[in-house]
């Protein structure tokens, strides 16, 4: 933690991420209004003391929606990264450690996923269903997201497996499960943590992208991407609708990218991983 704090960019990243956490946790206290309590009288209201960020076409307060939107982004990020990382790392470790037919099957599946651009796959999965929901977005992003963790864990396990301390553990009579959890998993932690931090940025960006296309959050959910989609139709009369949700997305994504860069430099200097582009 101290190593991260010493880097100014990572420190900035940590601050931005803390701001997201604070906004998500304290939204009911900070927001001047409920995100769905809208007054048509303040339709498209400009920036004022009553509406510090203005109001949207249905008269909802944009500041409140941006604050509550932090919850959506955080939920998507945590669930997508948690599920796809847990699944991918477990599968990658097993496949890297045992090799053989399991490994060959996994490698082919990974290749198959690489044949499709991730965002296209996510668009198709959400488009198959008529109902719009955040949970559907989370499922779609997990399906497209797990393979990068599996690839990472598999590669790392392949090298770790040959290390002397693993041989020693095997000679001591440790079973494969114990070796994987006690010897290999702790050494996987740093690269996976770095990847997961970038993964948060990717997942939040992807959710916003899908919602922007109208394939993500339903209208009553204050998703930043969906707010941008709405703002697109009012660029001439009310540009402020688009500004604040976009700024929120960018700052949060920037925060996770800064933090990921800092974590990588601190934990795993040889690693060249960088933030991925998802568009």
């Amino acid at each position: 933690m101290r190593v991260i704090w010493r880097q100014p960019m990572a420190r900035f990243g940590l601050l931005l991420v803390s701001a997201l956490l604070a906004a998500a946790a304290l939204a009911p206290l900070l927001a001047p209004m409920s995100p769905n309590q809208c007054m048509l009288s303040s339709e498209l209201a400009a920036i004022s003391t009553a509406h510090p960020f203005g109001a949207d076409p249905s008269g909802c307060d944009i500041l409140s929606r941006v604050l509550y939107g932090a919850r959506i982004s955080l939920k998507v990020g945590v669930l997508v990264v948690g599920i796809s990382c847990g699944f991918g790392v477990t599968l990658g470790m097993l496949s890297g450690y045992f090799g053989g037919a399991l490994d060959r099957v996994l490698m082919f599946i990974l290749e198959c996923f690489q044949a499709f651009p991730g965002i296209l796959l996510a668009i198709l999965i959400t488009a198959l269903f008529e109902q719009r929901s955040i949970n559907l977005v989370i499922v779609a992003l997990c399906i497209t997201g797990w393979n990068s963790y599996a690839r990472l864990a598999r590669g790392q396990t392949l090298t770790l497996r040959e290390q002397e301390y693993v041989t020693a553990a095997r000679a001591l009579g440790m079973g494969p499960i114990r070796i994987l959890t006690r010897e290999i998993a702790p050494n996987l932690l740093s690269p996976v943590l770095v990847q997961a931090t970038f993964g948060m940025a990717t997942a939040i960006l992807a959710e916003a992208g899908l919602s922007f296309l109208g394939l993500g959050a339903p209208p009553e959910v204050p998703s930043w991407g969906a707010m941008l989609n709405e703002g697109r139709h009012y660029m001439l009369v009310a540009p402020h609708i688009s500004v604040f949700p976009g700024l929120a997305i960018m700052l949060v994504v920037l925060g996770f990218n800064f933090l990921g860069d800092g974590l990588r430099d601190a934990l795993d200097p040889k690693n060249q991983a960088g933030p991925a582009q998802t568009r």
């Binding site: 940025a201 960006l205 916003a208 992208g209 922007f212 991407g225 941008l228 989609n229 703002g231 697109r232 660029m235 688009s242 500004v243 976009g246 700024l247 997305i249 960018m250 994504v253 920037l254 990218n257 960088g274 933030p275 582009q277 568009r279």
Partner: peptide, 12 residues
Amino acid sequence: GISMPNFWLGPL
């Protein structure tokens, strides 16, 4: 630049 979503950059 990497963190800038294109669906925000475009409208801007």
